[in-house]
């Protein structure tokens, strides 16, 4: 039917599987916090998110021991997310400020910085332990 081509299309789709990605649950739980708690306790399962590709840029990882304190990462960071710690000559990265460009990874001469595939980073506190990498 070229008059209303969408009608046969939707009727066909009616018998196919929906395309919805079920992450994290099929329907919104009536209480999200309770749901997450029961997931933690192992009483409920979470539908896994779509897998990340191999070179995904997630939360930053910092290898403190390798770092030589050259500050190059600070010079290339577009978001000014990296702070230099003069006492230890190491750096501290604020994840809430980071824009996940991974430029610091490329720039670091000793390969002390990496991107993990962790991306569920919501937090209530900008400066919580999770949100600061050092």
């Amino acid at each position: 039917m070229s008059f209303l081509p969408a009608i046969p299309e939707v009727l066909r789709q009616f018998f196919k599987r929906p395309a919805t990605n079920l992450f994290p649950a099929k329907y919104l739980p009536s209480s999200v916090t309770k749901y997450l708690k029961s997931v933690q306790e192992g009483n409920a399962a979470i539908n896994p998110p779509v897998e990340t590709p191999p070179n995904f840029r997630g939360k930053i990882l910092y290898d403190r021991d390798t770092c030589i304190g050259c500050k190059l990462c600070i010079r290339v960071c577009p978001a000014n997310a990296i702070e230099f710690l003069p006492d230890t000559k190491k750096v501290r990265i604020f994840v809430t400020q980071c824009i996940f460009c991974s430029q610091c990874n490329d720039a670091c001469p000793v390969d002390a910085l990496h991107m993990s595939d962790e991306f569920l980073l919501a937090d209530e506190d900008r400066y919580s332990e999770n949100m600061i990498v050092e």
């Binding site: 590709p53 070179n55 995904f56 840029r57 824009i99 996940f100 460009c101 991974s102 430029q103 991107m115």
Partner: peptide, 12 residues
């Protein structure tokens, strides 16, 4: 795009 660049929106 995500597969090639590492991110869906801000390709960098």
């Amino acid at each position: 795009i995500e597969y090639l660049t590492g991110n869906r929106v801000n390709y960098g």
